[in-house]
């Protein structure tokens, strides 16, 4: 968890001179100033994962791009949040996410309530330059109430983090490498046979896409309730 010492730092972000507390991330500062940096894997109240690479920004003097959600500010930092380079990069990230799995929005439970879809729209991604890979992932519908469709998963690991950090169940984990990597329940047992899952539904509601859903939902009906964690997120963001 993030530690703030309270020491005040001066930085420049998106052309604005700003003050930040030591331990804040670039994303924290940007959000406090009302500056938009697109994100997908970050979730208020959960640790930073730096998984989606959507929040990449340029820091003067650093040759590579840095994830705003997982980079702490340093005194005198000069951050560019919307150079043509990062804008192009972010679009490419969305395109790759869409091409990587099977995103058939019109048949998806999350259609209209999906952060990936919304982000694509916001960043003006209307098609992908990359061929769809059409991987074959089996849907896990063994749980009595929930389903997991890896075909819609963007590996943001929100489910993994909420399950471990908030619910304390540690049912979800990441397994496999590269294009075959996926999140899995327990030791890749069918979810319905998991001995750790408490059926709390937190993973369902933090999942940004249609990958985790309540069974019985028809297309476009999976409304995520992101405020399922109000108590915990306020506790965590206050740093206690």
């Amino acid at each position: 968890m993030k530690q703030t010492t309270g020491r005040t730092l001066g930085i420049k972000i998106g052309g604005v001179e700003a003050q930040a507390r030591e331990g804040d991330t670039i994303l924290d500062v940007a959000r406090a100033l009302g500056l938009f940096i697109p994100t997908l894997c970050t979730f208020k109240g959960l640790s930073a994962a730096g998984a989606c690479r959507l929040c990449m920004v340029e820091v003067r003097g650093v040759p590579r791009l840095l994830p705003a959600c997982a980079t702490a500010v340093a005194d005198g930092m000069d951050v560019t949040i919307d150079s043509p380079k990062v804008v192009a990069y972010r679009r490419q990230v969305i395109e790759l996410l869409l091409a990587e799995r099977n995103h058939i929005c019109a048949a998806c439970v999350a259609n209209g309530n999906c952060e990936l879809q919304e982000m694509a729209l916001k960043l003006g991604v209307t098609h992908t330059r990359y061929p769809y890979r059409y991987p074959v992932f089996k849907v896990d519908a063994s749980h009595a109430r929930y389903g997991f469709d890896a075909n819609r998963c963007i590996l943001c690991t929100r489910c993994v983090r909420v399950c471990e950090e908030v619910e304390g169940a540690r049912t979800w984990n990441v397994m496999g490498r590269g294009i075959r990597s996926t999140v899995a329940t327990d030791l890749q047992e069918p979810w319905g046979r998991s001995t750790t899952c408490t059926a709390c539904s937190k993973c369902i509601h933090v999942c940004p896409t249609g990958a985790l859903f309540e069974k019985g939902r028809a297309v476009g009906e999976m409304q995520k309730r992101e405020n399922v964690l109000p108590y915990l997120s306020s506790m965590r963001s206050s740093g206690r």
Binding site: L98, N102, H103, I104, C105, A106, A107, N111, G112, N113, Q117, E118, A120, L121, V125, T126, H127, T128, Y132, Y134
Partner: peptide
């Protein structure tokens, strides 16, 4: 959300 993008390999 008023507009949707439809990404649609089924076509």
């Amino acid at each position: 959300m008023a507009k949707h993008i439809i990404i649609d390999p089924v076509t």
